[in-house]
Design a protein around this nucleic acid. Structure first.
Length: 880
RNA sequence: GGAUAUGUAGCUCAGUUGGUUAGAGCGCACCGUUCACAUCGGUGAGGUCACAGGUUCGAAUCCUGUCAUGUCCACCA
């Protein structure tokens, strides 16, 4: 066999290598587990890529997600699992529609209504294809080992079929119903929003305190006087003595020219201390008021319409915007002397999370998913009950564990989910209407006069199905039995995503998977923190503080980008991103490259380690390698990848490069080249999940054959573990460091060679590493080793736990004296401080134990200082 | 208002169930470069582990409180 080792360049050319290597892996079919010849009983390891929204290209946060997941996937693939990582993108209904609307407005100054639905959807389609291509290309460039043969889109044909099917089945099970409820309405998007799609912005508002009419007994307060046109009651706390006498009474008032019938009701939710302690109930425009209205059978009067304008039937107010109407109402109140006060308060304004338009709560006919209805095939339990059971039974695990509480709190308060949206882009709802008749089915009903539902589904409906809709459901679940991909890969092993998606996404996946497949979508969730900018602020397009991972990658290489995003982070905690981090990671990649380059010149061909021929350094590095394998594998299994990277970095840079490689330059045994090569091959494997490109490139250079991406994960060789070797080498290191330090402290000329006298009990060990003691930048030659002996007259002295070292040399004593004098002064200052503290100690006498403990500690320190002082003085005398 | 997290070196962060002298990287100071790597090597300085109590033989770590910062949820009628 002839092994050709490529001559390696001085630095890794990441730009040249990345695309070539990715194509190599893809052509090799390694991303698709079906191509790997795995035994039938091989356990699966499945991850779904959280499908990025196709609204925009990827940012550094996405890169972090991809780096983390690719790390998991590569680790498990090498560990022999049937590993599948499914790629996809999310149509992000409302977000995409908004993005395209803005684009059309900007470029053509047209609204979607002006374009019309068919034309608008065509534009969306073009937009989707463009951004999708950009995103998927970015994902590839980061080296993500995704199985592209299973690429999915939340709105492609298979997903449309699946969504339709699930909707029909849930409707049949009585879980989907249509009803009029107060919804969050965005007048700009012209659509409902889920509760968690509503954001709150602090703002200054006017808080008006007033009476409906002069003959009305109760004063109420509001920030939105215009909605009071629809009031049907005033609610007070039943315990409130000011108002309890009125409860049950009904008043007819003339409010700004509108006749209102106001009933006084008692409700314990009313806060007596807020405002006037009385609340005008507007059932149509407040969720809480709606509930009160239902409880008290109050009529509902709609004031504001879907455009944010006042409905017909309100006289001069009709047709005005809410704000215009508000001003007029206030004016009216003032004129009629009904306004008691007007004060500035700060309150939270609810706005649309996509367009920041203030949302308008109003009643609307929508589709809802019931979370409380018992489901027959789930043992009569509701979706909510199952979602809770998942964590209470411990079946669904959160990492970090604290997020379990967040999930639970949210599920406990879960209300029926409004799944319909009045936007154009998205999954259509498989429902048809004829008069009051409603038909839900896979295809349109036969007969004339049926009108298809014009709404679309909440985007989380389709992303909630992601674990099984990407695995062939419903076809792979015929007859309620899993088959094919679904059988092999579901439930997935871990869901890796940001903690902000616990409620929006994770909970929905749990619910929908239970209903559709009868099992959890995954058993573990790993939640990463957000990548923030240098100042700890969220990155966003509007702030312009976003970072494009590919641009950083151009400069430093994708391996460096990945490694910098994987280092120094912990689960669930945000991290700040500095470009310097990537530069540091690039330096490491360069170090690994050069370590490899050096080793491959020493050992260009496969060699066999012979344990009988090992030098101390050989035995030491082998033992350290095996320990590192164990700790790294353990950390990765526990998803503690930053710790694993840190262990590997220390091993590679400090132990391998700085100590072992240096030592082999001066002391090489028969097996040293074999050891060098073995260590290199093993660390390439260990590093591969973190920095796949450079490690694969180096693997190819070793001539070992095959592809690192599918090389088996290293197992620890217990035979190489040696506490003896680790201990002995540690002794050597400590002596070398001690000599270097004492020379540096005394500012000796580094090129000046000195003799050394070493007194140690371990003479044999020291004799055997004499050459290293001389060579490893100690500037020492002619070493005398003895068990005991006299201290030379003029010599630098240092010691370690195992040895006393003298370097005979004449040094300039003035510097030494200065240092000792400084030491003396420090000790004196300390004694002064201590005396003061002891003098003032009385006032803390109420905590005697602590004082005693503290004083004890201080005395120990004091004793040490005194010893140091005595030594310093003794030396000072000698010098003088 | 509720929940949750964070506070460790100038900066970014580790610190695994409480256990020797609290660590790393960057930055800084000094020294060094023909010999794998200046994207490098060596040495060093730099810490009241936010603050105050408590538990313990022993606390960065556990408990209580205070302060500061961040995030999420709810509400503001």
């Amino acid at each position: 066999m002839i092994i050709m080792t490529k001559e390696l360049a001085k630095n890794f050319d990441s730009k040249e290598a990345e695309l070539r290597l990715y194509q190599l892996w893809e052509a090799g079919g390694f991303f698709n587990p079906d191509n790997l010849d795995l035994p039938e009983n091989t356990p699966s390891y499945t991850i779904i890529l959280p499908p990025p929204n196709i609204t925009d290209k990827l940012h550094i946060g996405h890169a972090a997600t991809l780096a983390i997941e690719d790390l998991f996937v590569r680790f498990y693939r090498m560990s022999g699992f049937r590993t599948l990582w499914i790629p996809g993108t999310d149509h992000a209904a409302i977000a995409t529609q908004t993005a395209v609307e803005k684009k059309i407005k900007r470029e053509e100054n047209l609204t979607r209504q002006q374009l019309g639905k068919p034309e608008f959807l065509k534009r969306v389609d073009v937009f989707v294809k463009e951004t999708q291509a950009v995103i998927l290309n970015q994902v590839r460039q980061l080296g993500s080992s995704l199985d592209w043969s299973r690429l999915a889109f939340t709105l492609d044909a298979p997903r449309q079929t699946a969504v339709k099917e699930l909707f029909v089945r849930m409707h049949e099970a009585g879980l989907l119903y249509r009803g009029e409820r107060i919804v969050n309405w965005c007048p700009r998007c012209q659509s409902t929003l889920a509760d968690d799609e509503v954001e709150h912005q602090e703002q200054q508002a006017k808080f008006y305190t007033f009476r409906y009419a002069s003959d009305f007994p109760i004063v109420i307060a509001t920030t939105r006087p215009e909605t009071k046109l629809g009031d049907t009651a005033v609610a007070v706390n039943p315990k409130d003595k000011r108002y309890s006498q009125y409860i049950g009474q009904e008043f007819t008032v003339d409010f700004c020219g509108q006749v209102l019938k106001i009933k006084i009701i008692g409700d314990r939710h009313v806060d007596m201390a807020f405002g006037t302690g009385a609340l005008g109930v507007t059932p149509a425009h407040s969720a809480i008021d709606w509930q009160m209205a239902e409880a008290n059978h109050l009529p509902i009067i709609k004031v504001i319409d879907e455009q944010g304008k006042i409905h017909d039937g309100f006289g001069r107010f009709s047709g005005l915007s809410a704000l215009e109407a508000r001003e007029m109402v206030v004016e009216d109140l003032k004129n009629n002397n009904l306004l008691v006060s007007e004060e500035d308060i700060s309150n939270n304004l609810s706005v649309c999370y996509r367009c920041d338009t203030p949302i308008e709560p109003l009643p609307s006919l929508q589709w809802f998913m019931s979370v409380d209805t018992p489901v027959a095939h789930l043992g009569g339990k509701s979706l909510k009950a199952k979602a809770l059971e998942a964590v209470e039974s411990g079946e669904l695990e959160f990492l970090p564990a604290r997020f379990q509480k967040k999930y639970q709190d949210w599920v406990i308060n879960l209300k029926d989910w409004c799944v319909s949206r009045q936007i154009w882009f998205g999954h259509s709802i498989p429902a048809w209407y004829k008069g009051t008749e409603v038909y839900v089915g896979r295809t349109a009903p036969v007969g004339d006069g049926w009108v298809a539902d014009q709404d679309t589904l909440d985007t989380w409906f389709s992303s909630g199905m992601w674990t099984f809709s990407t695995l062939g459901w419903p076809d792979t679940f015929a007859g309620g039995v899993k088959s094919g991909d679904l059988l092999r890969f579901h439930p997935t092993q871990v869901l890796e995503t940001g903690y902000e998606l616990i409620t929006l996404w994770i909970s929905r996946m749990v619910i929908l998977s239970y209903f559709a497949v009868g099992e959890l979508p995954f058993t573990k969730t790993y939640l990463h923190g957000m990548v923030l900018d240098v100042y700890g602020k969220k990155m966003s397009k509007s702030k312009g503080n976003g970072i494009d991972p590919l641009i950083v990658g151009e400069t430093y290489g994708m391996d460096a980008v990945r490694l910098s995003l994987l280092s120094g982070i912990t689960a669930g905690n945000d991290s700040k991103y500095h470009e310097e981090k990537t530069a540091v990671a690039r330096n490491f990649v360069n170090k690994l490259w050069n370590v490899s380059r050096f080793i491959l010149t020493q050992a260009p061909e496969p060699l066999v380690v012979n344990k009988a021929e090992l030098t101390l350094a050989d035995a030491w590095i082998l033992s350290r390698l095996e320990s590192v394998k164990i700790s790294v594998t353990d950390s990765l299994t526990k998803y503690e990848f930053s710790a694993a990277a840190e262990d590997l970095r220390v091993f590679t840079w400090d132990e391998l490069a700085d100590w072992y490689l240096e030592s082999t330059k001066f002391m090489s045994g028969q097996s040293t080249p074999a050891v060098l090569r073995y260590v290199l091959l093993e660390i390439l494997k260990l590093w591969h999940p973190f920095i796949p490109f450079v490690t694969e490139e180096l693997w190819q250079a070793t001539g070992e054959g095959g592809y690192l991406i599918v090389v088996p994960w290293p197992k620890a060789n217990q035979d190489y573990l040696s506490t003896e070797a680790e201990k002995d080498f540690a002794i050597l290191k400590s002596v070398v460091v001690a000599i270097r330090t004492v020379r540096s402290e005394n500012k000796l000329d580094p090129t000046k060679k000195l003799p050394a006298i070493i007194y140690t009990k371990q003479t044999e060990l020291f004799e055997s590493v004499k050459v290293l003691l001389k060579s490893l930048r100690t500037g020492v030659d002619d070493i005398t080793i003895a068990k005991t002996g006299e201290a030379p007259a003029d010599a630098l002295y240092c010691q370690t736990a195992e040895a006393e070292i003298y370097l005979p040399v004449t040094v300039d004593k003035t510097e030494e004296i200065a240092r000792l004098t400084k030491n003396e002064q420090e000790v004196k200052a300390f004694i002064d401080r201590l005396e003061k503290q002891l003098a003032n100690a009385e006032f803390v006498n109420n905590a005697p134990t602590t004082v005693v403990n503290k004083e004890r500690n201080r005395l120990v320190e004091f004793k040490d200082k005194q010893t140091a002082l005595a030594q310093a003085l003794a030396k000072l005398k000698n010098l003088l």
